[in-house]
Design a protein around this nucleic acid. Structure first.
Length: 334
DNA sequence: CATGTTTCCTGACAGC
DNA sequence: TGCTGTCAGGAAACAT
């Protein structure tokens, strides 16, 4: 199940490999509607476009796309768009993609994914050769994969999209369980896509505390709510709570300010460590090259029911919270 | 609005 | 062996 570290790993991998490549042809299987955008419209929109950059927001992978060669946009309000992107940001919501991409670029220096060379940083939009005029947004759901492969590689079952590229390679979207979503949007009409909640790696202590105070729901349910934080899923909610020493059924609003800060720091450490290890391969997660991650080897509680706690040897307990399997140490977490 | 519940979907696995 | 039943789980839709 791809969460923030897995999605980040895939986005970096695709960015390193496909940046500057051109989509020559887009093929979509007819099976997996509903996409968020009808397949025919995606294909029409994607074909001919250049991939300027690929990055992550929340659990979404965003491909920034340049205009197709020799084709004028039908809705040329681009000068307007460019003006918006250069303006000083007034509020968080107004922040242009430029800043987020720049932040990603800094992050990139810390990557030590064993399965891949350290990549060149993701450029800010200002460094791109041209302004993005469209985006292809990929959500992997539970079992989605985004793979860079050669055209002659065997097509896996449940392959729902294949983008043929000018370099001769293909970008494939495979998703057996079909919880994944594909969306195409043109930027002349809407602002660039951003996940609905705060980014777990960038959220400030004050913002984090504000998000989680005054709520009655279980802290685990709050961590999973993408409208509060975007990117944390079941694995990293459990691992973050363990690291912070907080029980998953504590009420979000009952946590002290100190506990919330403890939780935020634990979450950041867990996520950054997981990114360094290329994510967790628990079911069938692989990165853009088909390589597995290694963070599952360092899980302290997730899927460790009845196994001894790594800190105190107490057997790990499994309960259900917010409809999700939830794992914790009854001794280390209070 | 806030929160809880149901639904989608298929591979894996248990039980007979 | 091979069938049936159950379950996991992200997020949208629906219910309270």
């Amino acid at each position: 199940m791809p969460e923030l570290p897995e999605v980040e790993t895939i986005a970096r991998g695709v960015n390193e490999r496909l940046r500057g490549d051109r989509i020559v042809e887009a093929w979509f299987g007819r099976h997996p509607e509903p996409f968020k955008t009808p397949a025919a419209r995606q294909a029409r929109g994607l074909e001919g476009r250049v991939i300027l950059a690929v990055h992550r927001t929340g659990k979404h992978i965003v491909c920034e796309l340049g205009a197709a060669d020799g084709i004028e946009l039908s809705n040329p309000s681009l000068p307007q768009q460019a003006k918006i992107a250069r303006r000083e940001p007034r509020s968080r919501k107004d922040q242009p993609q430029v800043l987020r991409l720049a932040a990603l670029a800094q992050n990139d220096n810390r990557v030590e994914h064993p399965g891949a060379e350290v990549g060149h940083p993701v450029a800010g939009l200002g460094e791109l050769e041209s302004e993005p005029s469209a985006q292809w947004i990929v959500h992997l759901g539970m079992t989605g994969r985004l793979l860079v492969s050669t055209p002659d590689a065997p097509v896996a079952a449940h392959t729902h999209a294949r983008l043929s590229l000018a370099s001769g390679r293909e970008l494939r979207f495979v998703d057996p369980r079909r919880f994944g979503r594909l969306e195409y949007r043109e930027l002349s009409r809407k602002d660039g896509f951003r996940a609905p909640g705060a980014d777990p790696l960038e959220v400030t202590a004050a913002e984090f505390a504000r998000l989680f105070s005054g709520r009655k729901l279980f802290i685990k349910a709050a961590l999973l709510n993408q409208k509060l934080l975007s990117g944390v899923g079941n694995i990293y909610a459990d691992e973050s709570l363990f690291r912070a020493g907080i029980r998953p059924r504590r009420r979000s609003g009952q946590l002290t300010r100190a506990e919330l800060e403890e939780l935020r720091l634990a979450m950041v450490q867990v996520l950054e460590h997981a990114i360094r290890l290329g994510g967790s391969s628990v079911s069938d997660y692989v990165d853009a090259d088909g390589a597995r991650g290694f963070f599952q080897l360092e899980h302290c509680v997730y899927l460790r029911t009845e196994l001894p706690c790594r800190r105190c040897q107490t057997p790990i307990r499994r309960i259900v919270v917010a409809g999700r399997g939830t794992h914790y140490c009854p001794h280390c977490q209070r």
